[in-house]
Design a protein around this nucleic acid. Structure first.
Lengths: 335, 335
DNA sequence: TGGAGATCGTGAAACGTTTCATTCCACGAG
DNA sequence: CTCGTGGAATGAAACGTTTCACGATCTCCA
């Protein structure tokens, strides 16, 4: 197989310990020997075997990151933030995609634990997973991303969706819309429920009755297609809708399409607010007002918390970090 | 630290060899002993140390996959295809994102080689990388994704972009458009050059002169924003544009927005064809005609070729697989 | 001249598995 | 009663590193 440190030592005429030192503590070995060893290394095409290194070392310099859906821009922004911090601190990141399936999540947790990663960042399919608790009990630090642990057994980083819903609602109210249509996904999802709660809070704060001022359309899937169909059906019924708040940008784009294709002008006839501020929101047929989440920061904060816990397990205290989202106004409400 | 196989053996009152057998060849150990050992394992919370296992085994069951940009739907579809095949064949996939930076690519190649992955799937930042050649020379099989190696030193899987451009061109020509505007990215990119070449071929085949029938706008970036700006500027000049073919869907969406906001109707006044058929193409304000690439299949084929080479290195012959793209007609040309 | 440091290099142990030749044991056939 | 057979468990070697206590050599100064 591939040459080992021993082959290098032999060829360079030194001991294996010296070769190892060249690799890990170059300052401990004399200039000339170092040169000889490096020459031997490149002559043989030696590449360190990290299994052996890690076995001996007993600990690794890597973190696991398990996300729900790599196709979702939210998560690769998070991943980017995690990678930045990991890089700065000399850690490697093992990226895993659970695809929202518990089985996949558990398999990856197993693999990561077998690899003895230093810690794990995860958006669990559901909080309170037994497998995850076990990992933590056995001593691998864990940070929840975009989720909170009610029992506060670990750190977590998330964004306040209630505030997000409130921002959207207050914005539409400030434009004079007293009635708001809310197109959302399953209200059993914490995100959707929170965003609606925020919207209700804004409406109540403006002195209206949420139950009558807000009309909710709840769909199974949160994509453009279902929102398009739902909006067309709603628009066919009557013309009373003047403002829509959607639980994510894809749905908002679906509503936008339905509006345009039914002859409505946006924002003159219909104001639309989305959520997430995906890259394409700004480039839609009518650029979309949306709620932006500090995604990279979430990743950065989560990685920092994790490394902090890895480095000072005794003194570490778990924290629940909560970021605030931000309103980005564009043409779809800029009437 | 975490309990080892030795601790388990002790607790179960057997030898370490037996514990290892329970883990790897359960059929070799008697029912009752197996039960005792499994009980000890779960009592201690034992998790196998994969570094040690792999060190001893000398070889791993994992493949590396290095992509240019995880934010690009093309690549995570490819990744999904790779994962499917890897799963079926019992391999694990290590996913890496080079972000189009040679430095990151090289770092990941190094890491993967140190981990002794069985093989590497990669879309290199540029073909002919020395680091990649070195990897291959040292015996790690390699497959290029969405690229070809002119020297045929390895397998590769790609899509025929010339055919794609030809399909788009032929489609517009068949609708009666004799003049076509082509909005594209840097023609130094193989993809862009090929798509244009295909367009020219279609135009020539229809009996027109490509040089006069095709107007090319070449932009630095291939996103909606730059295409929007370019299209607005072009539309301001005159009204002679009746058909546009864009080198990717994001650009097409930018052109679509420019058209709508300048009062043009799509497809009545302007027919638009994109490329890639990204998920959102079907849900745009006017659903977009596009060229679809068999992305998952690319991933599947690449993984199959790689595993084939890993399993039969002696008899393996390198192949260059080339898929054909497909035209998807939607409203943006359905005049 | 001798001795104290400093500077470099050595060699063996250890990390946690898997493998495989070996031993152990029970049982049935002769 | 012996022998052979085969299933089950054992124990030591090996994988490629890193570490660390220990030598060897050299330098410098009393």
């Amino acid at each position: 197989m591939s040459p080992s440190i021993k082959d290098v030592a032999e060829r360079a005429g030194v001991s294996v310990g010296t070769v190892s030192n060249v690799l890990n503590h170059p300052e401990r070995v004399a200039e000339s020997t170092r040169a000889t060893v490096l020459a031997a290394i490149s002559a043989l095409g030696f590449v360190r075997n990290s299994s052996a290194a890690q076995l001996r070392a007993g600990t690794s310099r890597s973190l696991g990151l398990i996300v729900l859906d790599l196709a979702n821009p939210f998560f690769h922004e998070v991943a980017r933030g995690v990678e930045q911090v990991a890089d700065e601190l000399g850690y490697a990141v093992v990226l895993c995609n659970s695809d929202d399936q518990t089985a996949r999540e558990n398999r990856y947790l197993q693999v990561l634990e077998e690899q003895r990663v230093r810690g794990v960042l995860i958006t669990p399919v559901e909080v309170g997973s037994e497998r995850l608790d076990a990992l933590r009990r056995r001593g691998t630090p864990t940070v929840l991303v975009d989720r909170h642990d009610p029992r506060v057994n670990c750190c977590s980083v998330a964004v306040d969706d209630v505030v997000g819903g409130e921002l959207a609602g207050a914005h539409l109210l400030s434009l004079g819309h007293a009635r708001i249509l809310h197109v959302t996904g399953p209200l059993s999802l914490r995100q959707c429920a929170d965003r609606l709660a925020g919207l209700r809070r804004a409406v109540a704060a403006a002195g209206h009755d949420p139950d009558t001022a807000i009309e909710v359309i709840e769909e199974r899937a949160m994509n453009a297609r279902t929102a398009y169909d739902a909006a067309r059906a709603r628009f066919a019924r009557d013309d009373e809708v003047g403002a829509v708040f959607c639980a994510n940008d894809l749905m908002a784009l679906g509503v936008l399409r339905a509006a345009l294709s039914s002859g409505r002008r946006v924002p003159e006839d219909l104001a639309i607010v989305g959520y997430d501020d995906i890259e394409f929101a700004a480039d839609a047929a009518v650029p979309l007002t949306s709620i932006r989440q500090p995604t990279q920061q979430i990743g950065r904060a989560a990685a920092q918390l994790l490394v902090e816990e890895c480095d000072h397990p005794r003194t570490h205290a778990h924290q629940q970090v909560m970021f605030k989202p931000e309103l980005v106004v564009r043409e779809s409400t800029a009437g």
